[in-house]
Structure formats: C-alpha cells, structure tokens
C-alpha cells in the first residue's frame, strides 16, 4: 500500500485516471497526488485553469478533463514531482508519457532510456521524444518517453544514465 511502501495501488490510481474516452482525445495531466498535504503551486501553474483544489490548500488537486490540454507546464512545477502527462494519440501503437526528472545525466532526444514503473522495476528501453528543462531557477527536467500503449499507465521514470543511441 502507498502508505507503507510508497507505491500507489490500483484503487489510488482509479481516483485520478481520466476516462478512456478523454485519453483517446489527446494529452492530459494526471496528478498522482493522493495525500492531503498543504501544497498548491499546481493550481497557479496551470495556464488553462484546469487544476483546482477545494475547499482549501490541504485538498488533493482535481484536473478538469475538458480544460486540460496536456501542455506539461505543471509537470516541472509540482514540488512533489507527482504530475505526469499521458498522450495516447502519439501513434497507433504507442503513447507519449511525460514525467519530471532531476538526475544527471539528462538523456537527449532520440536516445533510448530504460523505463521504470512506480516500483522502480525495469520495463524496457524506449525512445526519448523530448527532454525539456524547467528553467534555470526551476531546475527540473521534463522527459517524454514513447512507450507501447499498454505501458502508458505503468512507466513513470527512467534509470539515470546508460542511455543508448538510436534504434
């Protein structure tokens, strides 16, 4: 369970996963933030006012699936590194998963990186579609990985280093 091993369960995830219909329309942010803590930078970070927190700063964030366009701005802003963007429309068989990354070295676009799931288990080698810095002050990178569709809700990190070139 999340509270004693740090791994969100299927029940936890069910509370934040968008509908299949919405996922098939394009990229959307998923806030894997399950604990009521006093924290709200994601609300101000969203340029589309798609993230809300009611009644106060201690609530967990809610993403409005109609307002969110999956722009990824929130990914580097969340202090808990708990927001991911999933795009199920990347290609017929693949999805693009964006996650925050704060290790060195940072992979380059086009390299292959070893994808990890929420338990840190290796899920295979996948191409890096983007590696974007959150800025000089923010310092968090946003990595986008192209994974098979069936792993879109599994892969949430990469192993730092050991990147391979090309396909």
């Amino acid at each position: 369970m999340l509270i004693n091993d740090g791994i969100p369960t299927a029940e936890d995830l069910a509370k934040v996963l968008p509908s299949e219909e919405r996922l098939n329309k394009g990229p959307i942010a998923i806030t894997e933030c399950f604990q009521e803590i006093a924290c709200n930078p994601c609300v101000a970070a969203c340029p589309h006012h798609a993230i809300s927190m009611e009644p106060d700063i201690n609530a967990t964030p809610k993403v409005d699936p109609d307002k969110c366009i999956g722009c990824r701005v929130c990914v580097a802003k969340c202090p808990g590194l708990a927001i991911f963007v999933v795009d199920m429309t990347q290609s017929e068989g693949t999805a693009a998963v964006t996650f925050p990354f704060e290790y060195i070295p940072v992979p380059e676009k086009g390299q292959l990186a070893c994808g990890l799931n929420r338990a840190g288990e290796e899920m295979g080698w996948f191409p890096v579609l983007r590696a974007v810095s959150g800025g000089k002050k923010n310092l968090t990178y946003m990595i986008t990985l192209e994974v098979p569709k069936e792993l879109a809700m599994e892969v949430r990190n990469i192993k730092a280093g050991g990147y391979r070139d090309g396909k």
Binding site: L2, G6, E32, N117
Partner: peptide, 10 residues
C-alpha cells in the same frame, strides 16, 4: 509526504 516516498520508490 507520500509524494517523496513515491519519488524514491520509482
């Protein structure tokens, strides 16, 4: 905070 735990775990 569980988000810190999840970050380590993954």
């Amino acid at each position: 905070f569980l988000v810190h735990a999840s970050k380590l775990r993954r």
